[in-house]
Every structure is written in C-alpha cells, then in structure tokens.
Simulated scan of single mutants.
Amino acid sequence: MAQQHLIVLDLDGTLLTDEKVISDKTKATLQKAREAGHEVMIATGRPYRASKLFYHELGLDTPIVNFNGAFVHHPLDQNWKTVHKPIDLKVVQEVVESLNREQFENLIAEVMDDVYVQYHDEKLLNIFSMGDPKVTTGDLHQYLKDNPTSLLIQAKESSVPGIRQYLADTKAELIDHRRWGDPFPVIEIVRHGLNKAVGLSHVAKDLGIPRDRIIAFGDEDNDLEMIEYAGVGVAMGNGISQLKNIANEVTTTNNEDGIAEFLIDRLHI
C-alpha cells in the first residue's frame, strides 16, 4: 500500500460548494482515499452541531476539530481525550464592557453547543440554529455564566478595524481574533494560541501520522496556520490570496471539485 496520509478538510468554501453541499465527485474521491487506507478528517470554525451532518455523510470515524481548534473530540469514541479550551469569562466580560454600543450590532457567545445572543435577530439566529442548539437571548452579562468556547462580535464594517486594534492592544496575551468572510462583518474571538493547526497536531499525533504526510485543504484566514503546518498545504482556487501565497499547492475552486482533482492527481486514486 502507498504511504498512509491524513487528509484534512475545512468545510465552508472548501469541502462544501457555495450551495453548502458536498459534490458527488468529491464524496466518491474521499471514499476511494479511505478505501486505499488514508485517513480523512474535518477541521472547521463551525461548532460540532453544525458540522456533524457532513461528518456522517462522509462516514468518518476520525476525531474532528471544531471552533478553529478550541474544541477537539471524537464523535464516535467517548474514551478519546477531548480537548476543550474556552475563553476566560472574565476576559469576555471585559471585552463586552469596553465596546461602545455604537460600534457593534450584536454579540454571540457559544458554550459548546449552547448559544447566547445579546439581541434577538432572525437572520443571525438562522445561521446559529443549525443542529438545534439551546438559544438564550438577552444581556450576556446576566445570562452567560460559563467560560465560552467562542465570542462573536457582529459589527458595522467601519467599526471592525477599531475593535480589532483595541483587542490587539489590550488582550493580545489572552485571546486571538479573526474577521469572518461572509455573510456580514463578524469578529470571532477564541482563547489565545488556538487555531486549526493546534487541533490538527493533536489528532495527527493520536493517529500516528507525521506532518509530512498531512494534506490539508482550506480557503480563508482561519486556515493559514493549518495550511502552513501540513506537509502539503493546499489552497482552494477561491481562497484568499494570503493563503495561496503560503500554500504548497493551489487547486481548483470549491465549486469545481478542487479537493477531488488534487487527490486524484496526488494519490493516484
């Protein structure tokens, strides 16, 4: 058998087409890769409840990286050592208190699969209701009692740079933050030092697969560390230029079976 590889898939803009589905060709190619002895896993910014559909659709039996590395677990193995690294509640409260009400439109905190929303917003809730979480609406100060896995600040486009600058100036040792691509301006905050590469290294070690045999696919800035960490980091054709610049390879877009095209060529499956 050819050397075993670990194939790592981001979801949005990578494994999923713009219609949020896995194409037949990509699904069939990943199945062939698994039949050939390769391991396949997901590493996403999404919570598990919003990624388990695709985990089961691919028939995976590997650990999964959720919340950009803040939560790493094995959906099928209760004994697997779960990693959950939330943000200190006190830090979140300080961030929330420091925000000028003019700067932001909403705040969303997620404690694993429980969602806390500051202001009721149907459009926002549609995005976060996937997987049917318990949703609490109201003042985060009052309702949020646990350390959250992530905090999202939905802000006006013009306010995003200022908020991020403030976070960089005052909380750099405690939290990391990123800008979401779509569907509206959102700053995502997780505990400092966490990213997909940290979660991926934990899983790769467990599977006994070295870095040089990891093939990772991504498209956004939350994939940068993972693409750099992997032996073969692959940027999607629709990916941001920053990612393409550091990737080992660039494949076709998420709507053109980019993952399948690359794996067929590289692994001869």
Rank of each mutant, 00 (worst) to 15 (best):
V111H: 03
S129W: 09
K156I: 04
T252Y: 13
G37A: 04
R164E: 09
N195C: 10
D176G: 08
D61C: 13
H120P: 13
D24N: 11
V198Y: 11
E122S: 13
T26E: 03
T82Q: 15
D221T: 09
G181T: 15
N79Q: 15
R34I: 06
P183Y: 03
N254Q: 07
H268A: 11
K85M: 11
R164Q: 15
D219E: 10
I215P: 07
K27Q: 05
N147L: 00
Y229H: 11
T253M: 11
G181Y: 14
D114K: 13
Y143V: 10
G208H: 05
D176L: 00
A172V: 11
S51A: 15
D121W: 04
V8M: 04
I7D: 03
G13K: 07
G218A: 06
P210T: 00
V72T: 13
G131H: 04
I187Y: 03
T26R: 01
Q78T: 14
D219K: 06
D10V: 09
K32M: 06
N195P: 05
V96N: 07
Q118Y: 09
H56N: 14
T44A: 00
E157N: 12
L60K: 13
L89Q: 12
L174K: 15
F71G: 00
E157P: 05
A172G: 00
N79K: 13
Q118N: 02
Y55S: 05
N238C: 03
L207Y: 06
